[in-house]
């Protein structure tokens, strides 16, 4: 056994989130690995499709739910294309958990604002459920989420659940042109919705994930509203292979996304060279 050898996992469930995004629910084939497996919100894994290769995704399910782990992916290249061809009952591989995590302990007792665009909701969703599963340990929970169109919203069922909860404030939007006749949310871009909601920075953390444009516009916006850069969290992704700091590929300046990340604060990002 060497550290590049994955554990075998079985696909228990496949959820079609959108036309090009799926969530897989996986469980370890080896019962003792399954029993021992633990991770922290924000960490990622290397998911194998034997014959196609490995792909890096955050673990999208929360650590508070045992017995399975989930990954959400969009078809972009060779491995994700192969993942789309898999069915319930097929075998994949998993290596992990790797990387750092969100500062869940620090966030307890505080307000948390979750902001995401498109499939960026996946890494955030892990933390959302982590917080909701321990709801009384957190203060206000605000979720601001948008996608290009109604069809492109991921975790639609869960968005409905969160919207119905009285202890969660959910704000949704779709891009102009992406709304349907019965759409009840806003029609604008995610940063615009953030500005509109204007979450209070007092005793608050912000977690932001999404396509580069969402990050580039939202992070400075939050700072203008009054969030401290050390309290704004995001995740970086980069081309990865080993996931454990040895293959030399994922560094942004002196920082390795797989070891020092993938979770970074806005303050840390500012000190990084423009190499991501």
């Amino acid at each position: 056994m060497n550290l590049y050898q994955p554990h075998l996992v079985c696909i228990d469930q496949i959820i079609e989130e959108t036309a090009d995004t799926r969530t897989l629910r996986l469980s370890f084939q080896n019962p003792s690995i399954a029993a021992e497996f633990d991770f922290k919100a924000g960490q990622f894994g290397e998911y194998s499709v034997f014959g196609a290769g490995e792909c890096t995704f955050c673990i999208a399910s929360p650590p508070t739910r045992k017995g399975y782990l989930e990954a959400s992916f969009k078809v972009v290249g060779k491995v994700t294309r192969a993942m789309r061809r898999l069915n319930v009952g097929d075998t994949m591989g998993f290596r992990g958990p790797y990387g750092n995590c969100f500062p869940v302990e620090e966030m307890k007792g505080k307000n948390v604002v979750f902001i995401a665009g498109g499939i960026g909701l996946a890494p955030v969703r892990c933390l959302i459920w982590n917080a909701l599963d321990l709801r009384d340990q957190f203060n206000d929970v605000t979720i601001i989420y948008g996608a290009r169109s109604v069809a492109d919203l991921v975790y639609k069922r869960e968005l409905d659940d969160w919207g119905r909860r009285s202890d969660v404030r959910l704000h949704q939007c779709v891009d102009p042109g992406g709304e349907t006749p019965d759409w009840k949310g806003d029609v604008c871009f995610v940063p615009t919705l953030v500005e509109k909601v204007a979450p209070s920075p007092k005793d608050s953390f912000a977690v932001v994930c999404g396509p580069p444009i969402v990050i580039t516009l939202t992070l400075p916006l939050l700072e203008r509203i009054g969030f401290a850069p050390e309290r704004i969290y995001t995740t970086l992704e980069n081309r990865m292979k080993c996931g454990i700091g040895k293959c030399g590929r994922c560094n942004v300046g002196p920082v390795y996304v797989c070891k020092d990340g993938p979770v970074f604060t806005s303050a840390q990002l500012k000190s990084l060279p423009p190499e991501y």
């Binding site: 194998s48 290769g53 490995e54 080993c242 040895k246 293959c247 030399g248 590929r249």
Partner: peptide, 8 residues
């Protein structure tokens, strides 16, 4: 130099 690629 020790950078490497992993592929199937």
């Amino acid at each position: 130099c020790h950078c490497f690629d992993i592929m199937d």
